[in-house]
């Protein structure tokens, strides 16, 4: 059964906005409520929307599962790499060496309530982005496999 024209057009309009909102949640994870896991889950709902609105076969013609698989592995590797960054600088594993250093994401925050500055928090934004990429790919590939297993014709 094909979904109606309204659903398909609505999904086409909505899914870039969902992805942008998810990326906002991921990138601002150290300033506002949210973070890598939550933002990745938000982006994965865009994949769920597209999979429900179109059939699994159409989506599998557009995006291959190997792309999401590689994306998930890349996210985990980036996360471990952000942890090893501490080892390279002579600090313990997972040490936050970029915080307060003046380099990338290295500004100092004033104590107490403040308006927030994106260029702070050291390796935390890097880890947020890595985990966001991983959760995005992981949940999207789980959804694609579950949709492909349940027939694929009807949905």
């Amino acid at each position: 059964m094909r979904m109606s024209k309204i659903v398909r057009t609505g999904a086409c309009i909505l899914y870039p906005l969902i992805i942008i909102f998810g990326l906002y949640v991921v990138v601002h994870g150290h300033l506002t409520p949210g973070g890598g896991f939550q933002g990745g889950a938000v982006i994965a709902t865009a994949a769920a929307l597209v999979l429900v609105a179109f059939s699994h076969r159409e989506v599998a013609g557009m995006v291959r599962k190997a792309v999401f698989s590689a994306q998930e592995s890349l996210g985990l590797l980036l996360f471990i790499g952000a942890g090893i960054l501490g080892l390279l600088a002579g600090a313990p594993f997972f040490a936050n060496i970029l915080a307060n250093s003046g380099l990338l994401f290295g500004l100092t925050v004033p104590p107490g309530p403040n308006p927030g500055e994106l260029n702070t928090a050291g390796v935390i934004p890097l880890m947020n982005i890595a985990v966001g990429v991983e959760v995005w790919g992981g949940l999207a590939i789980i959804l694609m496999y579950l949709f492909s297993a349940t027939g694929g014709e009807g949905t």
Partner: peptide
């Protein structure tokens, strides 16, 4: 309040 210092109230 939530443990977030961005524009946090007292």
């Amino acid at each position: 309040i939530a443990p977030i210092y961005t524009n946090a109230p007292e």
